[in-house]
Design a protein around this nucleic acid. Structure first.
Length: 308
DNA sequence: GTCCAGGATTCAG
DNA sequence: CTGAATCATGGA
């Protein structure tokens, strides 16, 4: 395997600067599971079928790709939302009146929701249940290496549904998937017959999208919310995992609330970019940087509203 | 050994 | 409908 020849580093010219701490959280904070920290401090990985590297350099965020890659810059600018749509959405979040959100947002300035493709998000979060981020990354890397198309160097695309559905049991088991192997195979078998599934799903309103996602094996409320947020750009989606449960209990006084109730609270309280607010809180909570001040103690709704 | 992880599914009530 | 048990694996 010939070593990869990289282009020189080039600036991305962001709407808002991204410090190294924010970049680390963005590339390895539980959104995508495809990026690794290289010895030189840069983040190296594959998005879609494009290998790339990014780093927080002396002149802001910089990128490079293997020589010969076409459209890598355009794709990366989209992936990282360089154009700044999320900068405006973040500004519009209620951080002025919410000191918990304000401190979480200040801890990770410039943090963005990665605009992953649906395939990447779905495979990643099918592996995510009851697993830590590091282990999810290992599982996804094994899937790509064993079943994904080689992209040069040691880079591999994520496996197609056809490759997953046709994989030997021993191969999947060697990816440390545990019981999630059945989730992946089950979803692969259903989507194998729907090559346009991502386009069909993308045409749905968010409630219908969530319902369609949850009809897949291994996709429950939380995984569906993550795939909608990270894979389909539904910024209003508010995934509730164990960290968000703890963050909302500690900092918002919402002890004893069930996940569906917390999801309803998050969307009502944070609005159109609730998913982005969720990512600030998730990152702050997971890294022990969440403000402990209770900002509000709303009344618990009598019944969680069904997701429709 | 015990507990937990960006939970989902199945089953008892 | 809700809550508990179960699932496979690895790290703290």
């Amino acid at each position: 395997m010939a070593p990869v020849e990289w282009t020189s580093w080039r600036p991305l010219r962001l709407a808002e600067d991204v410090p190294a701490g924010t970049l680390a959280e963005q590339m390895d904070g539980g959104q995508s599971f495809r990026w690794s920290l290289a010895d030189d401090g840069s983040w190296v990985g594959v998005f879609g079928r494009t290998p790339a590297a990014v780093r927080s350099g002396p002149h802001g965020l910089e990128w490079r790709s293997p020589k010969g890659a076409t459209h890598a810059e355009e794709a990366l600018r989209r992936y990282l939302d360089v154009e700044g749509a999320q900068a405006r959405l973040s500004e519009a979040l209620p951080w002025r009146s919410d000191p918990v959100l304000r401190s979480a947002r200040a801890a990770y300035p410039g943090l963005r929701i990665l605009r992953q493709d649906p395939h990447e998000a779905l495979i990643g979060f099918l592996c995510s249940s009851n697993k830590r981020i590091l282990q999810i990354r290992v599982m996804v890397a094994a899937l790509a290496t064993k079943l994904g198309e080689p992209l040069g160097g040691d880079f591999h695309a994520l496996p197609s549904w056809e490759a997953i559905a046709g994989a030997e049991e021993s191969v999947l088991r060697a990816c440390s998937l545990g019981y999630r192997a059945a989730y992946l195979r089950g979803t692969a078998k259903e989507l194998l017959a729907r090559p346009r599934w991502a386009d069909e799903f993308a045409a749905l309103e968010t409630p219908a999208l969530l319902a369609e996602l949850q009809s897949l094996p291994g996709v429950g409320p939380k995984v569906a919310a993550c795939v909608a947020l990270f894979g389909f750009g539904r910024l209003e989606s508010f995934p509730v995992d164990t960290w968000v449960v703890q963050a909302l209990a500690d900092a918002y006084g919402l002890r004893g609330w069930k996940p569906a109730q917390l999801e309803q609270f998050g969307q009502a309280h944070f609005g159109a970019a609730a998913g982005l607010a969720q990512q600030y809180l998730f990152s702050a909570a997971r890294n022990g940087r969440l403000s402990r001040a209770v900002v509000s103690v709303p009344k618990k709704p009598a019944r969680p509203r069904p997701r429709k």
